[in-house]
Computed example of a mutant assay.
Amino acid sequence: METPRSPFAGPMPWRNRWARPELAGEVTYPMWTDERRLRHPVWRGPRPDRIPAEVRR
Rank of each mutant, 00 (worst) to 15 (best):
M1K: 05
M1S: 09
E2K: 13
E2M: 13
E2Q: 15
T3H: 02
T3K: 07
T3E: 05
P4C: 02
P4N: 04
R5M: 08
R5A: 08
S6L: 00
S6R: 04
S6A: 07
S6Q: 03
S6I: 00
S6N: 12
S6F: 08
P7H: 04
P7V: 09
P7M: 02
P7W: 03
F8V: 14
F8L: 14
A9R: 08
G10N: 07
G10F: 00
P11A: 15
P11N: 14
P11Y: 03
M12R: 02
P13S: 01
P13V: 07
P13I: 05
P13C: 04
W14F: 12
W14D: 13
W14Y: 12
W14M: 01
R15P: 04
R15Q: 03
R15H: 11
R15I: 05
N16C: 13
N16D: 02
N16E: 05
N16R: 13
N16M: 07
R17T: 12
R17P: 01
W18I: 02
W18S: 01
A19H: 07
A19Q: 02
R20P: 01
R20H: 05
P21I: 12
P21Y: 12
E22C: 07
E22R: 06
L23Q: 09
A24N: 03
G25C: 14
G25E: 14
G25P: 03
E26L: 15
V27H: 00
V27K: 12
V27W: 03
T28H: 11
T28N: 06
P30G: 10
P30T: 06
P30S: 09
M31R: 15
M31P: 00
W32L: 14
W32S: 10
T33Y: 05
T33W: 05
T33M: 08
T33E: 08
T33C: 09
D34A: 13
D34S: 03
D34E: 15
R36V: 14
R37D: 02
R37S: 09
R37K: 11
R37E: 09
L38P: 00
R39L: 13
R39I: 00
R39D: 12
R39K: 15
H40T: 12
H40Y: 15
H40P: 08
P41R: 08
P41I: 04
P41V: 07
V42I: 13
V42Y: 08
W43Q: 10
W43Y: 15
R44M: 15
R44S: 01
G45N: 01
G45Y: 09
G45W: 06
R47V: 05
R47W: 04
P48I: 11
P48W: 15
D49P: 02
R50S: 05
R50N: 06
I51S: 09
I51P: 04
P52H: 00
P52N: 04
P52K: 01
A53D: 02
A53G: 11
E54K: 11
E54A: 04
V55K: 13
V55S: 13
V55T: 05
V55D: 11
R56L: 14
R57L: 01
R57W: 09
R57A: 07
R57T: 01
